[in-house]
């Protein structure tokens, strides 16, 4: 698995619950090191071991942790670059939703080794109900996407309702209802990146 995913989970746990919790997770998961490197590859089993250990350690369901990870990835100031990349998807939340079809391809442009699930967005009849289907590994990524969708709604200032629905085997599905596109102000976004990027 691409270290970027392992490293993201590590930073989320460390930043949200503190270093002591992370140390506890490291020892419960029997990690042979204390930090993941974003640009190295790791055995697939490691991230599940970390997730299980964190779930035990914090007494929180894995699903909740994954969804919180998705929110963290978008809203934490340290991850501004990821938020920016997602905002490139469009000027409105609706456009952003439509750009999710391309998310896998866009990620591959930047990091060819990064394996993300294939994502497909299906629009409802009245134009405000959508279904996002995530197919393929890593397992639980749909939960992360739920957090991302929620945080991006705040970013655009849109009001949405998210609901898990039962999908086919091997798929994770989220029902998205866009109630209002410009409910709040949202966060500032300019195409021109920070100086030096």
């Amino acid at each position: 698995m691409h270290g970027l995913i392992n490293r993201s989970l590590e930073c989320f746990l460390r930043d949200t619950y503190g270093n002591a919790v992370w140390q506890d997770v490291v020892s419960r998961a029997n990690l042979p090191f204390e930090r993941f490197e974003a640009m190295l590859d790791y055995d697939d089993g490691l991230i599940y071991a970390v997730l299980l250990a964190a779930s035990d350690c914090l007494s929180k369901p894995r699903e909740t942790l994954l969804e919180d990870l998705g929110t963290y990835l978008v809203s934490n100031p340290d991850n501004e670059s990821l938020r920016r990349l997602l905002r490139f998807g469009g000027d409105t939340y609706m456009e952003f939703l439509h750009s999710l079809d391309d998310l896998n391809g866009r990620a591959k442009l930047a990091l060819p080794e990064l394996e993300l699930p294939r994502m497909a967005l299906y629009g409802g009849r009245d134009g405000n109900d959508f279904r996002l289907v995530c197919k393929g590994p890593p397992r639980g990524f749909g939960r992360v996407m739920r957090g991302v969708l929620r945080a991006m709604a705040d970013d655009y200032g849109a009001l949405v309702l998210l609901k898990d629905i039962d999908g086919e085997a091997g798929c994770e599905e989220i029902a998205i209802t866009l109630i209002q596109s410009s409910f709040a102000d949202g966060r500032d976004f300019r195409l021109a990146g920070p100086v030096g990027v």
Binding site: L4, A38, M39, S81, L82, R84, L85, F88, R106, L109, A110, L111, L191, G193, V197
Partner: peptide, 14 residues
């Protein structure tokens, strides 16, 4: 632009 930013971020990590 997307590619420039994504590659810059990946390069910075590397």
């Amino acid at each position: 632009l997307y590619l420039i930013e994504a590659k810059s971020a990946a390069m910075a990590e590397s």
